[in-house]
């Protein structure tokens, strides 16, 4: 993982150099959610198991954010999209691409964990995002 403090605990980790999102799979119905939580939002079962998803995904939808939204501390413009991962899970995520002409629905993408901003204490903060997959 890139050096720095994760933007929030429990969202992602890096296994043998490969970043993964930490999701949850329901022990009753098998459906998945990200971020991981203890209760299944589909069937209300109290019991999920933590799983790792990614890094490969497929871009479903995207748009460009031109001005910093409230509280955002990274660079603008940036792309925001919905990425489909294994097992039917789709997540909302920032995309590293700043040129919309290089994005299209269906584009293969891969998860990255990288510095996003430096916090008030001078510490680098790392977050997850997706980039176009290497050809």
């Amino acid at each position: 993982m890139a050096d720095g403090r994760p933007i929030a605990p429990g969202l992602f980790d890096v296994d043998a150099g490969e970043p993964r999102l930490i999701a949850a799979e329901c022990v009753a119905c098998g459906r998945r959610q990200f971020p991981a939580a203890a209760v299944c939002p589909y069937c209300a079962a109290d019991g999920t198991r933590e799983i790792r998803v990614g890094p490969a995904g497929r871009l479903e939808l995207y748009t460009m954010v031109l001005r910093a939204p409230p509280g955002y501390r990274g660079p603008v413009p940036y792309a925001l999209g919905i990425v489909a991962l294994d097992g039917g899970l789709s997540v909302v995520a920032r995309l590293t691409e700043t040129d919309a002409t290089r994005l299209r629905p269906g584009l293969p993408v891969e998860l990255v964990v990288e510095p996003l901003f430096t916090d008030d204490a001078g510490q680098r903060v790392v977050s997850y995002a997706f980039r176009a997959a290497a050809a």
Binding site: I7, V92, R94
Partner: peptide, 21 residues
Amino acid sequence: ESWREEAGLAATPAYFALRAQ
């Protein structure tokens, strides 16, 4: 939550845009 804001996920018009797309 504040981490979603910091991560750029609080861009409300972007969600309208994704829906339009």
